[in-house]
């Protein structure tokens, strides 16, 4: 069983390889303007994919062909190894993201709102556009022109640590004074 499975996978891999090899063989041909001879070679490729052993030959064949111009054959073999991985993601648009432009929600930065759009192409993030940026106020504008601050932010959380004293805004409000006065009155027995 193992033998069959192994040979089957090897065969499959080979077939896949051929498909890619064929693809890559086509692309170089379309780009440069080549003699009709070369185009014929490309046409030969599809049938070759069906026959595994001979498939390796077409890629090498152009090199061997003396009649065709020398630059083109060299191109095909050099490109054979590289395109093998590249075509793989291309046909599958899944990748990490779907292509398109996505607008983010407006986030409340402490100096104003920030809203961006993400541009996805080829399944990858390729650009970020700032749709909203703090510049409504004079002070914010000043900061925007400088580097964006990267100060650490956190939600405050109550601590239970013992401390010698507490720092807070000076309680000079009338309410505070009144409250303190009444407390002191009570404290006086």
């Amino acid at each position: 069983m193992r033998k069959y499975a192994l040979s089957a996978t090897v065969g499959l891999i080979f077939i896949f390889y051929l498909v890619f090899a064929k693809k890559q063989a086509i692309t170089p041909l379309t780009v440069p303007s080549l003699p009709s001879n070369q185009i014929q070679i490309a046409d030969n490729n599809p049938p070759l994919t069906q026959d595994p052993p001979s498939s390796t030959q077409p890629t090498t064949q152009p090199v061997a062909q003396p009649s065709s111009p020398p630059p083109t054959p060299t191109k095909t073999p050099t490109k054979t190894p590289a395109p093998a991985p590249t075509p793989a993601p291309a046909p599958k648009p899944t990748g990490q993201y779907k292509d398109g432009q996505y607008t983010g929600s407006s986030a409340d930065a402490y100096f104003g709102n920030v809203q961006v759009a993400a541009i996805i192409s080829g399944g990858k993030l390729t650009d970020i556009q700032f749709l909203d940026y703090p510049q409504d106020r004079e002070t914010s504008l000043r900061i925007s022109q400088e580097a964006l601050p990267i100060l650490k932010q956190e939600a405050i959380s109550v601590q239970s640590a013992n401390v010698d004293a507490v720092s807070g805004a000076t309680q000079t409000s009338q309410a505070f004074q009144q409250s303190l006065a009444s407390a002191l009155t009570q404290a006086k027995n």
Binding site: I156, S157, V158, Q159, A161, N162, V163, D164, A165, V166, S167, G168, A169
Partner: peptide
């Protein structure tokens, strides 16, 4: 070292940092 808390501005009986 002296231990100082920062008062919770929303609840003055609490501290939010030591």
């Amino acid at each position: 070292p002296w231990r100082v808390g920062i008062r919770n501005p929303f609840n003055t009986s609490q501290i939010i940092k030591a």
